[in-house]
Amino acid sequence: MTGSILEIRDLRVAFTGAAKPVRAVDGVDLALVPGEVVALLGESGSGKSVTLRSILRLHPENKTRIEGSIVAAGIDVMALSGAALADFRGKTVSMIFQEPMLALDPVYTLGAQITEAIRKHESGVSADAARKRALGLFERVRIPSPERRLDSYPHELSGGMRQRAMIALALACNPKVLLADEPTTALDATVQVQILLLLRELQRELDLAMIFVTHDIGVGVEVADRIAVMYAGRIVEIGAVRDVIRAPRHPYTIGLLSTRAQGGRLSGKRLPTITGSPPDLASLPPGCAFAPRCSSATSACLEAAPAAVELGHGHAVRCIHTAAVA
């Protein structure tokens, strides 16, 4: 896609630490234009976090095999290493984690952690200037008494405030792409809404491209322009929010949405309305990974992994039955 700020092509990630490699991501294609938000949905273990972390190359090199191409703001991410990789992380693309309590260093003040990032990426910024910027960021994410909070440690803040600080840190060096890995899952319902609104507001103001991982279809609909549904390391359906919600075409997406119709949230390991459990990523079947759980599966489904079928307006589905219909 031309003009995309992030372009992932045929991303494959396998963890080789165990006896059999775990194929956590198995051919993901995804492209975002500036200012676009894509919600990444899927059951636990479907490879959402692994996909995000691959974009920053955060997997341990010696135990991971990673293939495909990732280009962010014109930078070939797969070719980066050492200092160039460190320069890229947090500056071009930055990340918000699910649990800020765990993702922030417990023995550094929040201010120190933000100024550290600023001064790492912009040499020549004085400590004073960096602190002023950190203060500005804290005001921007609406942390009360920001001056004092800069000198607080992560454990001294409430969960919501910590997530705001995490957002401030992620935005410190004006990234172009923001990766948010379930940024509200660990929070109380009311706080979730506030953080969600804040993120959306900042994303619009700064014209950030964002991949937003969530278990909650409602949240995805709320924040995103497009929805991508992952299953066993592949994106099985992607399209504009309206298309995917109103006319889901992949049996898995249809199953997901019916859980939503019942007011359910994708929190557990399994989906109540889809029987069976996700496949073992260490021994994926040759065909469609969803076939064993799919009510409309035929013998053809077991033969080869289905290719993506374009349904128009960027709505694409990986299912041979959809192809037959279309």
Partner: peptide
């Protein structure tokens, strides 16, 4: 093994940092 180490790398610190 803690998550914050990933966080530190994610914000662009070198291994020395």
């Amino acid at each position: 093994s803690q998550e914050f180490v990933v966080g530190l790398r994610a914000k662009g610190l070198s291994e020395l940092g």
